[in-house]
């Protein structure tokens, strides 16, 4: 965990925490309460990943009786040469990028709106965060049926004044439909993060700028946006990490289809492991997923370290 150590070093020392090198026995007494949680996490997260790494070097299929055979990097070679593997990678990238960017744009707009003194703001906010709380499998199934159905769906009815009639969203725009549902689910999450940022900005500074004659756009670009930037970055990174792992929507709405048009990496890995029982191939895909996510996560951790320092200095 080099990233973690790097980040941790850069983190600001908390004011109250000044351990003054106590004797070894006291040090262990201090560590004791931490150990159960630490050991639990190591066992439950690190060991499976090491085992995944080991499996990824083997040719092992659960459907045949043949024992696992060490094959070196050949599973990785097939990840990069097999068209289905590559297509799942592309679907994941497109799904994550579009969903994260659109959600974040909407989130900034919504957060600016919710930061106004409007009637029933708390209640509106409560309604707005509901998509994030509902069970993802439940909402995905309802989007598939009652919302996006070509004949009886609510979406087509709402769009009918705009000349949209009986579009079969899930068969004509499968990836777009899933991305739309992802945007619906993740915008509230990002809105909450951006809103937390907005509420940390002192209003009198903005008021002063306004009195000095600064226009709305200038105030946003020069003052609000720079202040929001770390929060927007944090929301984007955390959102990317979560959305890369999207499984529930794909499973419930399209099962990866039609064809492989909505098969993203997690769903492809699931198919390899639990339908084809190709343990080695699934493990190799898992390792690649970890590498991609860890690249995003290293940025996220760094950012959390800086935001975290800021919060602690204030609090």
């Amino acid at each position: 965990m080099t990233v973690v150590e790097q980040v941790a070093r850069r983190t600001h020392r908390a004011r109250r925490i000044t351990p003054s090198a106590p004797p070894a026995r006291r040090r262990w007494a201090r560590r004791l309460p931490l150990l159960p949680a630490l050991i639990y996490m190591i066992v439950i997260t690190q060991i499976p990943f090491i085992v995944t790494l080991w499996y990824s070097l083997q040719n092992w299929n659960l459907t045949s009786n043949a024992k696992a055979k060490f094959t070196g990097l050949s599973n990785y070679a097939s990840v990069f040469t097999n068209a289905n593997y590559r297509s799942s990678l592309l679907v994941s990238v497109e799904m994550t990028a579009v969903a994260v960017i659109v959600s974040m744009l909407l989130a900034v707009a919504l957060a600016l709106l919710l930061n106004q003194k409007v009637l029933g703001r708390g209640f509106a906010r409560t309604l707005l965060i509901t998509p994030f709380l509902i069970m993802p499998v439940a909402s995905a199934l309802l989007w598939k049926t009652t919302m996006l159905d070509p004949t009886y769906g609510l979406v087509n009815w709402l769009l009918s004044p705009f000349g949209v009639h009986h579009v079969a969203w899930l068969s004509s725009h499968p990836l777009g439909s899933i991305i739309a549902v992802l945007i619906w689910r993740w915008t509230p999450f990002m809105t909450l993060i951006v809103l937390a940022g907005l509420q940390g900005q002192p209003l009198d500074v903005l008021e002063a700028a306004r009195v000095d004659g600064a226009g709305a756009f200038v105030i946003f670009r020069r003052m609000i946006f720079p202040h929001l930037r770390p929060y927007i970055e944090l929301g984007t990174l955390l959102g990317s990490i979560y959305i890369v792992n999207t499984f529930d929507e794909v499973y419930s709405m399209t099962q990866g289809g039609p064809g492989t048009s909505t098969t993203n990496m997690p769903y492809y890995l699931y198919e390899q492991a639990f339908q084809a029982y190709n343990i080695g191939g699934a493990a190799a895909l898992g390792v690649i997923t970890v590498i991609i996510v860890m690249i995003i996560a290293s940025f996220a951790l760094r950012l959390i370290a800086s935001v975290f320092r800021f919060e602690e200095a204030v609090g």
């Binding site: 997260t45 060991i47 499976p48 990943f49 085992v51 995944t52 499996y55 990490i241 890369v244 792992n245 499984f247 990496m265 997690p266 890995l269 699931y270 492991a273 343990i279 699934a282 493990a283 898992g286 390792v287 997923t289 970890v290 996510v293 860890m294 995003i296 996560a297 996220a300 951790l301």
Partner: peptide, 10 residues
């Protein structure tokens, strides 16, 4: 931040 899918096989 580690993807759960990657650990499911083991």
């Amino acid at each position: 931040m580690l993807p759960i899918v990657a650990a499911i096989v083991p």
